[in-house]
């Protein structure tokens, strides 16, 4: 997958215009994540499908609700009973979709390229959880939302996908069109930190 020519068309981060404002917040480091290939995988969790997809993506799919597992160059996030988000920082989106889809199709599943559907912010620092707690009603205490957990919920009035990498290290996926709102919300919330 990796040897195909890299696209030369310029790619723009949806939050590029807010990069400086986000970096100005000192209490919590907020980094614009690099783009990744991402597919939305729909698959019967009961059959042999998950194992077949796991073989293609290089790691097991998370079994429990609202959890994630690490892939060689990405994440496998469980979004629903028959739904996962699989990311790769190495594959090209169209290849990632094709590969996962092919494996899933054999088991009645499917994969759809959603690489540009969401963008993501990485929040690091001791107060990262506090910052999210100013906009999010989910119980984000480390004991309730430890490393390995993820959750689709609301941040302010926007749907987001939160990922716990560690106590002081969280990631937030948000639909591209809502990203500006979410970034502005976090910058505003960080005002008193």
């Amino acid at each position: 997958m990796a040897d195909l020519p890299v696209p030369t068309l310029p790619w723009a981060h949806p939050l590029e215009s807010r990069r400086a404002r986000l970096e100005d917040v000192s209490a919590v480091r907020q980094e614009l994540s690099a783009p990744v290939a991402a597919v939305d995988l729909r698959l019967d969790p009961a059959g042999a499908g998950p194992a077949a997809v796991a073989a293609v993506v290089g790691g097991p799919l998370p079994e429990r609700p609202d959890t994630w597992t690490a892939l060689p160059a990405g994440l496998a996030l469980r979004l629903g009973p028959d739904e996962w988000l699989l990311t790769s920082s190495r594959a090209r989106p169209e290849d990632w979709e094709f590969g996962v889809d092919e494996a899933a199709l054999a088991h009645g599943g499917s994969a759809v390229d959603v690489s540009a559907q969401r963008t993501s912010l990485r929040l690091r620092g001791q107060r990262a959880r506090d910052l999210l707690a100013s906009c999010c009603a989910l119980d984000l205490r480390p004991a309730s939302f430890p490393r390995g957990r993820c959750a689709q919920t609301l941040l302010g009035q926007s749907a987001v996908l939160l990922v716990a990498h560690d106590t002081d290290d969280l990631q937030l996926f948000v639909r591209t069109s809502f990203a500006g709102y979410v970034a502005d919300l976090l910058v505003d919330a960080a005002h008193d930190f």
Partner: peptide, 17 residues
């Protein structure tokens, strides 16, 4: 903080700028 620009989410396209 749900006042002004943050009153309601403002959705924008990549071409907004």
């Amino acid at each position: 903080r749900e006042r002004g620009d943050l009153f309601d989410p403002v959705r924008t396209t990549p071409l907004h700028a």
